[in-house]
Nucleic acid binder design. Sequence first.
DNA 1: CGTCTCCTTGATGATTCTCAATGCGCGTGG
DNA 2: CCACGCGCATTGAGAATCATCAAGGAGACG
Lengths: 264, 264
Amino acid sequence: MRTIEADPPTDAGIILRRLSQYAEFSPEELAFLIEQAATTEKLSAGAELIVECEPMNRPHVLLSGWGCRYRTLADGRRQIFEFILPGDMYGLCHRPQAIALTNAITLTPCVIADASPLGEAVLERPQDYPGLAAACATTASLDEAYLLNQLMRVGRQTAYERLAHLFLEIAHRLSVVGLADGERLSMPLTQEIIADAMGLSVVHLNRTLQQLRRDKLIEFKNGSARILQPDRLAAIGDFRVPQVTSNECVPRRPFGGGTFSLAD
Amino acid sequence: MRTIEADPPTDAGIILRRLSQYAEFSPEELAFLIEQAATTEKLSAGAELIVECEPMNRPHVLLSGWGCRYRTLADGRRQIFEFILPGDMYGLCHRPQAIALTNAITLTPCVIADASPLGEAVLERPQDYPGLAAACATTASLDEAYLLNQLMRVGRQTAYERLAHLFLEIAHRLSVVGLADGERLSMPLTQEIIADAMGLSVVHLNRTLQQLRRDKLIEFKNGSARILQPDRLAAIGDFRVPQVTSNECVPRRPFGGGTFSLAD
DNA sequence: CGTCTCCTTGATGATTCTCAATGCGCGTGG
DNA sequence: CCACGCGCATTGAGAATCATCAAGGAGACG
């Protein structure tokens, strides 16, 4: 299941690409970040990243592939809480002796990097790494924002609306790390996975996806998706790009719906 | 809507009662904590605590009353993310210049205390206040655990199961601060509020509550509830007491269902 | 060529929502 | 004191959403 790989394979840049969105880094911080991708590990799909109720060990960065955090009920029903996308960190927690609140697994073959030094720097000596600390705090807040979005979708939106919102959110997250252009994005999830994330049955999810395709809103083709009408999707799913740090912020207005460009 | 009150009215002890569950405090930390309840403020029901998309200002502690975090869709559908109970903190964020991801309001008349010094101590000088920092980290993790529980309920449980789980969770949280004994707890929520939290319509919530009463699982009487059969409720809702720091932790087993006593 | 995974479809039923109306307690003002 | 309004709980009826069960098809792969 696990293969240690000493040579940095390709993507150390994805960490930079991601985190440099959220703060300015000193040259030392940059060097420190690049080092994080020194030791990487390849995982096949279905590998355990985090096990619920066990102590959290080292924080990691996902360099490529998709993962998710989830929990199951006693009878096997599964709820996926959030997807872990390339450039995301997982396993970082402020609390000492923290135990995991959820499971996490890989959904596709993945490459991960041990980010223990980064985690330690941010938690133990934030004053020495202000840029890194700020960037990690921002990613943590974004994670919370995605979790809240997820709850909003599952709690108060129809299946159709949920999917519109989900695909825009994923497209946006992927575009931040350069894995989605204006319309096309990679979408390696099976319908069962999407269903477990959206709180739907596979059958109903399948039919709702068909509806989206029939309405010419999204296309799917062997592992990738194409957002055909981002504006209509945004209106349907009431999607807005998450805003976590103070800049402008469009206040919520009924049916106003901030227009959304996948390019940004 | 707001009334400034200089004299500490009654409950400074609730902060201690809550936080001392999670860490040992030095005498200085204790004194520091007690000071937090010096300036309190009374709010009526429906008062805004946090406004989405606006910069977060000072962190607070809720001393009495209930609040919630929520967001609404463009057409008015509301999702309540979590309840804020006596002893809970809100408005604390690691990120500088953070903007609020959700709204928060009071659901009943409330008394709040400004916890800015506490927030500053924990965020800026955690090494000087190790106990406080650890306790706040733990409460933050518990908040995340409650949010995940909420998503689990709404995404994968039936209305009946959701309510069983919710009431046990609230009973447990209240018992931590001494506001619930083994079976009886205060329950000042309207059905509309519970419905918005559980992602249900008011009508269906009403009928599901009746079912719980008919099944002799819970009783409701003018603003308070009585848990009649905690074990059966725990089995129905698949409830387990949240475990956030490393001690023993019952691993998830199909239909094993850790038994649950409200007393602890 | 068989097997496996995943997607798709049809049929049926349960869950849940919406609309609309009624009842009940409580405070307020006449 | 009583009528009234208001917020909240409750009920009935009908419809939409969504789940379940079961089966078939398409593609990948050894």
